[in-house]
Design a protein around this nucleic acid. Structure first.
Lengths: 264, 264
DNA sequence: AGAAAACCTTGACGCGCGTCAACCTTGTTG
DNA sequence: CAACAAGGTTGACGCGCGTCAAGGTTTTCT
């Protein structure tokens, strides 16, 4: 996004001109390859808050790269309890995990107005054959997702509610930092209920603990706005597994953002 | 395993002669490709119960295919709480999720005497280029792991202890069924404490609920042996997300087994 | 603008399950 | 075979957090 020019509809922008190419599938490709990749990517589709990108059981026809906005993915029990498995932001690729069964096994819903690029599944074979780096990048993307899921299982299996919230806020903070947004002040695009569902705790518990953090001067939070006042203390509450060696790779303009709505 | 012949050390067996090739990396390859793949696979390494296959932070040099025995993988908080993220059995490929960071982000420990094939990471590039189907198979393997992790997050985030145990037993049962072992009678290779760590509940709770299931006539369990007496009831306790359409693909000899020790 | 819906917050209450402890059984080792 | 270690089981107790409820605030829709 944030190309300098032309049509109000940015649909025409090519991969090599997209501000996200350093985060997205083209990452690591040389420019000739990027041009080639561009041939296979269809842009774009825009969906509104609450609309579905895909649902469970649906034929796996496209993978989606998020250009702006944000998306939640979730799985459910048959009696309707829903577990949010991830929040996804610009530059991230969605839906690859349907490869195995050829149909989607989770559902993806927009948290706000969101625009995505579609990549047809039929292209993947061709694509990976013509551009070996794409193959590698697909593996990296899935590998990263597995790592995230493992951290999340650790959180869900072994941490109490306070640790979960602290971990959550710090993870968000780092994701913002990596995109050169303020790591200490941001807007959430997801509701308290979404946060609770993601962290495996009740909505009310989310509220209560945010309130407690605020009383203790660790954060300021009002509705969707969050300001981290004492990151160090937050870290000691979270008791993280890794020593938080977040390599901050400056990519984009500094500023502070909503949960990346129209951010890039 | 279970080749009919030769050396007591089965190290010499080739991929195309391995009883597991329908489950493992070679799945879907034609026989010429399998011969080629065979060139890259080093077999074998044997580790004893409690020994590590790899540890967190270790350089990612090999992926491992399990030939016999079983392995648990886990991640930990810095203060030592450990979450088991999976139990792995013959035919499964381990360690691929280290691709992204080039070092292992979980640890793998043998639950019993276990033998594995090593596949050098340096081969992957070459391999995937020469045999496109390997590329696809790697994606499928990771995709399957992500799907498993999602189900596990649902379990950890939304299910109570009883549902967790019931889900666990049924999942085991299906894995055995898929390998033509008895789905209603099997031995576990993991301790109660491991089960608890995997399911996000205390060891004592595992015992108590198994005892309760037994009182209710749903199972019989004594130490590591489990017999499922009422699978239907177990299913209704578990309240699963999918209608349990386990495609049972008969692969191997019928029998009943320990948690796959030397099973195949 | 007004109504309705969605979202957020706070309080009261109770139960599911973690924790601690004691004891038993099985496997391991010198 | 004795001694120990590891694993498994059961009971007692209490607290963290889910659930229910009520009310406030913001956003969406007509």
């Amino acid at each position: 996004m944030r190309q300098t020019v032309q049509k109000p509809d940015c649909a025409a922008i090519a991969c090599q001109d997209c501000g996200l190419y350093q985060l997205c599938l083209p990452m690591g490709l040389n420019s000739a390859d990027t041009v080639l990749l561009d041939h296979y990517v269809k842009r774009k589709r825009t969906i509104k808050r609450g609309q579905m990108l895909y649902r469970v059981g649906e034929q796996f026809s496209y993978a989606y790269a998020i250009r702006s906005g944000s998306v939640k993915t979730s799985v459910s029990t048959e009696d309707g309890r829903q577990q949010i498995t991830g929040f996804h932001i610009p530059g991230e690729l969605l839906g690859l995990n349907a490869i195995d069964e050829n149909r989607h096994n989770c559902e993806a819903v927009a948290l706000e107005t969101t625009s995505v690029c579609e990549i047809s599944v039929n292209c993947f074979d061709e694509l990976a054959r013509q551009i070996p780096a794409v193959h590698f990048q697909m593996l990296r993307i899935m590998s990263k997702e597995i790592r995230h899921n493992q951290e999340q299982m650790l959180l869900l299996g072994k941490k109490n509610a306070e640790e979960r919230l602290a971990t959550y806020l710090l993870t968000l903070s780092r994701r913002f930092a990596m995109r050169n947004y303020s790591p200490t002040q941001f807007n959430l695009s997801m509701s308290r209920s979404d946060i609770g569902s993601y962290l495996g705790i009740a909505e009310e518990t989310v509220c209560r603990i945010l309130a407690r953090f605020q009383e203790e001067g660790v954060i300021v939070s009002e509705r969707r706005l969050v300001v981290l006042k004492d990151v160090k203390r937050l870290g000691s509450i979270a008791r993280e597994s890794r020593p938080a060696t977040a390599r901050v790779i400056p990519l984009l303009r500094p500023s502070h953002a909503t949960f990346l709505n129209g951010a890039l």
